[in-house]
Amino acid sequence: MIHMQNVVKTYRVARRDSGAKAAFFALFHRKYDLVRALDGLSFDIDAGEIVALLGPNGAGKSTAIKILSGILYPDSGAVECGGFSPARDRMRYTREIGVVFGQRTQLYWDVPVGDSYGLLQDIYDVPEAEFKRNLSELTELLDLKELLRTPARQLSLGQRMRCELAASLLHSPRILFLDEPTIGLDAVSKLAVRQFVKVLNEEKKTTIILTTHDMQDVEALSRRVLMIGKGKLLLDGTLQDIRRDGESLDESLVDFYQGIEGFDGKEE
């Protein structure tokens, strides 16, 4: 279903020394550093799996999601998702996927959520019958009934995340990307999101790729874990491969991160 082989992605980042003088010279002549976000990343994911991408900040998780979802072209390496080359076949491929960014919204801020859904129906050309069926299913599962008539700006974070999930599933995608879907949510909402994702995967066989820093998400959802660090795949296994006796999962994870060569615990 998803195949990534030897994918490399480099960003050019403007370098600027601190101080007013340096800032002034940067106006005329800019130096660039090359940052290697992905450095030969390879993995395969089968249809119907739930896979969690783990790794410290700056490890390359978001870049991997952006490449898999077709936002960015890789510099080199092969990427194939559901028979498409994501960035090149953007127009056809994006019909097959749903993407939720935990930190951003795709809903119109000032109109009722249901109206945003109506626009999405037009954007994806979802036939009326399919749209109605999906919407009523999602309304049921995510308890959206009251929310559909509320403008997005009046929703709590947890309510909004439920609406975001529904928004990205109205066109029945085969693959769902969740980039930190539980960030900032309270316990009740987290459980609701996890429960929903689980049901979605079991009933619709939707392939789900998840990034998160919340180990409980991983524990509840994914049998398989891909650990990324410095743009490389460090581990392809289960949580059991990370867990050590007598430690919490978070502690084990810290141990693991510290074992990554050159990792200093700071964001890059």
């Binding site: 952006k66 077709g70 936002i71 994006t94 019909r95 993407v99 960014f101 951003r104 994806y124």
Partner: peptide
């Protein structure tokens, strides 16, 4: 980042 969302739509 709204532009990323634009790229995610067919």
């Amino acid at each position: 980042g709204e532009y990323d969302r634009i790229l995610l739509r067919p």
